[in-house]
Design a protein around this nucleic acid. Sequence first.
DNA 1: CTGAAAGCGCTAACAC
DNA 2: GTGTTAGCGCTTTCAG
Lengths: 329, 329
Amino acid sequence: MADIARMAGVSISTVSRALAGNPLIPKPLRDQIVEIARTHGYVVNQSARSLRLRKTDTIGVIIPLAHETGQLISDPFFLEMVGRLADEITQRDYAVLLHKVVITQTGWLERIIQSHRADGLLLIGQSNQHQTLNAIAETYRPLVVWGAQLPEQKYCSVGSDNVAGGRLAVAHLAQAGRKRIAFLGATDAPEAAQRFDGYRQGLAEAGLPFDPDLVVRAHYTMEEAGRTVADFIAAGIPFDAIFAFSDVIALAAVSALIEAARSVPGDVAVVGFDDIVLARHSAPPLTTVRQDLAMGARTMVDLLFERMSGGPVRSALTPVELVARGSSL
Amino acid sequence: MADIARMAGVSISTVSRALAGNPLIPKPLRDQIVEIARTHGYVVNQSARSLRLRKTDTIGVIIPLAHETGQLISDPFFLEMVGRLADEITQRDYAVLLHKVVITQTGWLERIIQSHRADGLLLIGQSNQHQTLNAIAETYRPLVVWGAQLPEQKYCSVGSDNVAGGRLAVAHLAQAGRKRIAFLGATDAPEAAQRFDGYRQGLAEAGLPFDPDLVVRAHYTMEEAGRTVADFIAAGIPFDAIFAFSDVIALAAVSALIEAARSVPGDVAVVGFDDIVLARHSAPPLTTVRQDLAMGARTMVDLLFERMSGGPVRSALTPVELVARGSSL
DNA sequence: CTGAAAGCGCTAACAC
DNA sequence: GTGTTAGCGCTTTCAG
């Protein structure tokens, strides 16, 4: 910046002001300085600027890893979410800093906050960190979480209406005459718990009994879910439908079923959750509860910027929609 | 840091050294200081650290947009690449800064470099910026590009063996008895040009004539490619196979064909490129030229770190492999 | 082994 | 309008 000042025959302050578009500097001079900087490829050093301004023009996007330290941000849902968030953030002229963190050690969030690398934080999935997040919310404001809305929640969250989604799925299957609908997925993580709630409500509304034997606990990766379903089939408990926590495990279930010579949807109808790109293109195409990630991402970023400028804690629930396809028809 | 120093009864310098694990400070004192910092949630301010050290511990990942300012990092290939790169970078304890840039205005790369927000840069796809990159390479070293290896290239690149891929695809189709194999995709961008080259070589090797009428120029989005293929079918030029630049447009082609009542692979066999997750799960499953993105990403990051520590310009070609599935069998 | 002090590059009072 | 100057929080020489 000193060089540019010398070339323009002015002081450093003037260059700083000109480059910031400060109207105190007359327009012609400003333009001239900007031009000199441009031709010499000069750009303001962001580290120095951030230090001085206490502002980084960066939003941190955090992908929490429950424990699997073994790499791989490969889940299609996460990837799509990251893409959407990046779009929204870039559009507002902020940069995106990607954090992949293992949330088992305490202080993971404090460390990210205190490093001062971002002006605001977006967390994809609250996992089992509700307490941590509530504690943090007391002192750190610019944080928005994708996930379930929980009782006594002090932080900002955006998420789909998971309960409604579960009910929709079960209603759809019941309407198609299915009587023994299994639930496939975790039931402890907040979003999973809500979908499971919706499942139970849906059963009640359809006049179907709840059978604990039909609750199949499954990990969220395709491989593990596939094995779980294979075991479940082998156990011989009769069932004619599956409502899965996510499309990924729903697709794993479809594969396992076909492997075991059960037809989909003939013997077993399958409904997933998310509507990832794959769902539309699988064989058979997957019936699913669609989450509007574009809207979800936009809402998260909107809320974050509100928070960053001092707004109140507001949470949002985005609507879901049943998309009926071949796997249940 | 001053606070921590006061609490520990030492000077700021000592705290700085202790936190950096400097062995000059006796181990017990060091541990004590680290402990105080930890309990008080103190973390070094990265802006200040970066300014002082001229080092950010961050790698920038650049997603170049040819012109479509309209948002959306939605292409599965890009998304998967970003995920893999993020994995590799995080594993080396660097942060990931995502840049989505429109490369139409000159100086896009200089601006990113000069902003000093990253210690090294990874560019996904060289697009039509070969000259720009060559020029930059004269002065800026820590840059690795995913893409084709071009003559007189001064920068570091990592990419698949596109020519081999094209040849493999055509050989596979020719062996299956296909005579009129269309090429679907761009032919100007470097990677596309190489795949097209491979296509022509493959035809020659199979003793098949090259027919310019069978070169179908298509944009890389699913929607536009779908329309292009529909038009091509309507034009009535006979063909019995398609080799597509990417899986995304190959899948668009499959949809368009089925829409037009042509069976796949009966009437038309289709081969894609990339082996995105979707390829395995589509109906019919897509035959494709598989790129090993895990290896590609690892190689890019390895080469980048080599460059960052002053190594020579080295480029790498990663092998491809034909994965035969239902769309061509 | 530890502390004092300089300075990374920038912005914004505060003068003039 | 423009320049002088202090200082953002850190690391590291240099002195002790």
